[in-house]
Structures are given as structure tokens and as C-alpha cells.
Design a protein around this nucleic acid. Sequence first.
DNA 1: ATTTTTATTGAGACTCTATATCATTATTTT
DNA 2: AAAATAATGATATAGAGTCTCAATAAAAAT
Lengths: 146, 146
Amino acid sequence: MAGDEEQVFRNFLARKGRRWTPERKAVLREVFAHHDHFDAEELHRRLRARGLTVSRASVYRTLGLLVESGLVAEVFVEDGHMHYEHVYGHEQHSHLRCLGCRRVIEFRDEALPGVEARLAAAHHFQVTGHKLEVYGWCAACQGKEG
Amino acid sequence: MAGDEEQVFRNFLARKGRRWTPERKAVLREVFAHHDHFDAEELHRRLRARGLTVSRASVYRTLGLLVESGLVAEVFVEDGHMHYEHVYGHEQHSHLRCLGCRRVIEFRDEALPGVEARLAAAHHFQVTGHKLEVYGWCAACQGKEG
DNA sequence: ATTTTTATTGAGACTCTATATCATTATTTT
DNA sequence: AAAATAATGATATAGAGTCTCAATAAAAAT
């Protein structure tokens, strides 16, 4: 449900004996205000641009909690740092990346749930998620670079 | 074929107008001397322990070339830095990771080639590879942490 | 073989991401 | 309202990875 993420995060915090603060609220809102991938510094900049004063330290700390809560996911490392996306309220999806233009296409494939199920059974794992990234060259970039 | 990696790397370098040097040879050998995952600093330390003097800069540079050549793959980020594995001569595989004990289990799943093929067709991509990581809690770690 | 061209190396400086420290402040509990 | 304790922000610190550049070495040209 849209908008529900605040309640989910508050429940998560309460369960862990952590507190609900204005800073965490500001970060949560900013994270769910856009649908693009983002990184920690960009998030910090956007908050400041809105006139919200949340320190870098708190941005990083809150981001960690959001990932732990499952509301946000680490997507991939690019340019030497992590990139994220919010996942709550969105179907699980994977990423197809072009090695040339670095464009990212989201996709869903019906085979993945089966992979998870087989692994859970074979290794007695309680599988909580997966991260799949397929890479190659998009139509426009094929032929470039050797 | 085992041992072939040197020829593959030399061909790769030649094709790009890059040179075959003692430093690159030392790095290549060390990378293929073990079957575990490793990181750049560890690789550098192992080379020094063998009495081979290859600078950090050259280790990082060579690692980049090895990844580009396809002989080595970036596996995952842990503890804030990248971890690698050599892949030449090994069947493509994915990783199942326990969030508790951090154990990594390699696996192969017959569904992945199909996923690649579908994406290639649907998006006119020339798919060169994928990275799949499934995570959760192993039998021993289930119940730990909330 | 010698010379020329040019990629590579190593040392260290540097950038940047991310975390740790800690006194102060704010939230929650009692 | 007071006590307990988690969170914040400013800054320091750690660590990964890249860049610079003079010196060197590999490959190509002669």
C-alpha cells in the first residue's frame, strides 16, 4: 500500500527498541519521494535542498536501517559507491545493465521464484531475497568497444 | 583448460595494445593459485608474502584488466570493499549467502540461461553475463537476530 | 642490434565513501 | 517530572581505490 512505509518503518524501529525521530522521518520521505536509483550523498543533498537539516552521519545511519528493514535495497555499486532503491510497494525486480551507456532496465522474470524455492529446499535456507543483475550491450551500444 | 588463462590474458592484452609484464604475470598466477574469493588488498599481501614486489597500484590496475578480460569476476561487496573470484575454467555459478554467519554457498541453476535468452530477445541485448546472489538464513542461523 | 615509441611501474599523494567518537540533545519509560 | 538511554551533529578517522609523474621497460621500427 502506498504511504504505508512509514508505519512499516516505525514498527521495525519499535521492534528493535530504536526511536522514531524527525531526521528518520525526513530521510524516509525523501527516499520514497522519487522512483529512481539514488546514492547516500545525493539523498543528503536533496534533503538539504529542501531545507531539512539532516547530517550526513544520520543519512548513512538511517539508510542502513532502511535496508535492514527491507524497505530499501542495495542495488549495485557504480563509480565506487553503493546505489539504492526503495522496494516497498514494488514488485521484486532485477536489473539489466548496458556496459556501454550504463543504462539500466528493470525486468521481472518468472523463473526467479522457482530458483529461490529450489535453494531453500536444497540447503534448508530461509531465503529472504535475491539480487540479480544481467549485463551486456544494448542494441545501440553493440559494436562499440572490444 | 587449466593453465590456459595466461594465454587468454596475453591475447586479451595484445588485442588492446597493452603489454605483458612480469607484474601482470605475478598477479595472474596468484589469482589462479587459490580457489577462494579474495579482495585486492589480500591479493597484494599474498604477493608480497611470496617475495614478489608488485605495487598496490599495479595490483588494482591488473585486477581491472582481469575483470575486463572476463577471467575474473566481481562477486560481491562485503565490509565496504569488492571481492573477486577467478572464473576461467569454472562453470558459471551463483552465490547463496547466509546473512547470519556470512557463509557463501556456490550453486548452479538451470533456469538462468533461459533468463538470459529471454532478455536478449526482448531487449535486443547482447548479454555477456549475470550476477545472481540469493540471501537468507542458513539452517544453523535461523532464529538468530530479528 | 639499436633506436624510437609508448605503455607500465612504483611511490606517494589524494579523493571519496563510510564509519567511529563523543558531548549534547531528544525520545521514551518509569 | 525525572531517569534512562538512544539519536544527533560535528568532526575525526579509516579504508578503498585512483591519480600523478618521473623513471623504466616492453614492443615496434629502423
